[in-house]
Amino acid sequence: MKFCGPKLSLCCTILSVWGIIQLGIMGILFYIKSPAFLEDLFIPENATEPAAYIDAMEKSFSQIALNCWIATALYGGTFVLSGWQMWLNFKK
């Protein structure tokens, strides 16, 4: 059952492989609280006190790690789907 053309399925497969690798790694890095991502964290405006700030930071780290893995899983699904389409398109 084919619903993607060869180009679209190839593009989606490549993108999802890239997504799985990069987002997976980024999830791990956020999980171990890599300081390289300090600027990417979500910290509320009112968290000015050190304790509140650190608390928000830690929460944000784990939240983003989870989000990255969710996206990784979604890309995993995309990979299966587009890979299957690609297989249909390119088998001869």
């Binding site: 993108l15 987002l23 600027e39 990417d40 979500f42 944000s60 989000n67 893995w69 969710i70 996206a71």
Partner: peptide
Amino acid sequence: VLRIGLSTAGTTGGFAMYFIFAAWA
């Protein structure tokens, strides 16, 4: 671009990340 997806609060961020990452890539 990518920070929009990263700093979206809550679990919806995961789904936002899915699309934002595609745009960023």
